[in-house]
Structure formats: C-alpha cells, structure tokens
C-alpha cells in the first residue's frame, strides 16, 4: 500500500508544471524515504531529478518499494481538477496498474478521486556522483528566469562566465549582443535577494537557452536557484522545495562545432 498526502495541492501542481514541458512521462520511484523521479528529455540533452522526502508529506506510507510510470500530460489533466487549497492524496495498491489521486476540499464537503492507468516505462537511470563544482552561484530564481527569457531573444545559446567578481550571462546573434552582469551582493536585507558566488576556479560555459528556459518553469517553487558549474561537465540548476525536497536539472554544455 502506498499513500502520500499533501495538505495543499499547489505544491504538486507547481512540481508538475516544472517538469511536464521537458518530459512526456516519468517513473515515480516510491520508498519509505520518499518519492524520486529521474528522467531525460526526449533528445537526451538534459536530465531532471526530483526528490520529495517522506517527512515533507503530511502523511506518507509506503509498505513496499513501488515504481509508478506516469504520463505527465495525463497527470496534469487530473491535477487541473484540484483546487489549490485542496488536500491531495496519491494512493496505489502494491503491484497495482493504476494510481488514484484524491482531492478533498478544506471543508471536506467535496471529495473527488481520479484513477489513472500506470505505464511500464523502460527508462535508463544514470548514476550522478557527488561532485565538487568550480563555481556555485546562488541567486534569486526570478532574476535567473528573467535573464534566460531576455537573452533567448538574441541567440539560441547563452554563455555563462563566472569569476570571483561576479557572473556574466551573454548572448549574441543577428540582432546584436547582450550581456548581463551580476555582482555578488553584500549586506542584503532579505536572504532571498542575495547573489552568492562560491568560486574555486573561473568557468566559461555555453548552454542552450531553450533548456534553461524550460528549467525556469520551476521558479514558482523557490525564491532562490543554485547553478553549479565546472568545465566540460553538465550544469546543475537546483530549486529547493521548502520542507519537501528539491528539483535538479542537468544540462550538457555546448561545444564548438
């Protein structure tokens, strides 16, 4: 028996919004430690890794490890049927071929349940080792989303250059060129407005704007985003989900043709 409850459907809606543009389907691996999903986009350029800890749920029970392959478009249709302040419970029997989403209104007067067929997905799982990155940048998630959106107008790629002075995002194309420089902040009142750079070695890396913009769909989940970079390895874009877990996106850098 698997049962996971969140007192507010908003978080789950936001999580799905953060992955459904990149992934058509995904396997939710459930164990007593929580729920994990790892999946690559169709073109195998990026990878999404979602971790939701069991202690972040309002109720969590998982008697046996369970892998639930879900069509994320179908899941999105179902979650649209939940009000933001509904309690959402995800339920499945052991070895079941369906999952049930139950939504309960705050006053308990409306209870709806939606059953969805599970899929057998043959997905490759990649082992991602713990890595010390040359540069780790923490910045407001909204600012990162704004920069990615703005620079995508100029080019398909953005160059991220990180030094101890700051981080620079650049794009150039037919229209011209664009550069956005952010300096590390000191003495900001609010932690969520801070720009913090931890640098061991400076890095310059090029990434596809299309994917960065897809990652920023996670912006509503977190005030801050963390970018981890080293030469010639995938960028990690991490959004923490308060008291529940995190979503990490891995993106292979572009190299000279």
């Amino acid at each position: 028996m698997f049962e996971a409850r969140l007192n507010n459907a908003t978080t789950l809606k936001k999580i799905l919004d953060a992955i459904k543009d990149l992934l058509n389907e995904g396997t939710f691996d459930c164990s007593d430690s929580g729920i994990q999903l790892q999946a690559m986009d169709n073109s195998h350029v990026s990878l999404v890794s979602l971790t939701l800890r069991s202690d972040g749920f309002d109720k969590f029970r998982c008697d046996r490890n369970l892998s639930m392959g879900m069509n994320l478009g179908s899941m999105a249709k179902i979650l649209k049927c939940a009000n933001n302040d509904d309690t959402v419970t995800i339920k499945a029997q052991d070895n079941a071929d369906t999952v049930t989403f139950m939504f309960e209104s705050q006053n308990q007067e409306k209870v709806s349940d939606y059953e969805m067929k599970l899929m057998n997905l043959d997905q490759e799982h990649l082992g991602i080792p713990e890595t010390d990155y040359s540069c780790v940048v923490r910045m407001p998630a909204m600012e990162f989303a704004r920069i990615c959106r703005d620079l995508a107008q100029f080019s398909e790629s953005v160059v991220i250059c990180c030094t101890k002075e700051g981080v620079k995002f650049s794009a150039s194309g037919d229209v011209g060129s664009a550069n956005v420089k952010l300096a590390q902040t000191f003495n900001v009142d609010k932690e969520e407005e801070a720009i913090v750079i931890e640098m061991q070695e400076p890095v310059v890396l090029t990434f596809a704007c299309r994917y960065l913009n897809a990652f920023t769909k996670a912006t509503p989940l977190s005030n801050q985003v963390q970018l981890s970079m080293s030469a010639d390895v995938p960028l990690v874009v991490e959004y923490r989900i308060a008291e529940l877990g995190h979503i990490r996106y891995y993106l292979a850098p572009k190299i000279e043709d």
């Binding site: 073109s43 195998h44 350029v45 990649l126 082992g127 292979a252 850098p253 572009k254």
Partner: peptide, 12 residues
C-alpha cells in the same frame, strides 16, 4: 554542438 547527457554519467 550539443552533447548527449548520457556521455557524462554511467548507467546506474
């Protein structure tokens, strides 16, 4: 050129 993410990590 865009590299494949699988070229960086081993299959678990």
């Amino acid at each position: 050129m865009q590299r494949d993410i699988r070229s960086f990590y081993k299959t678990a």
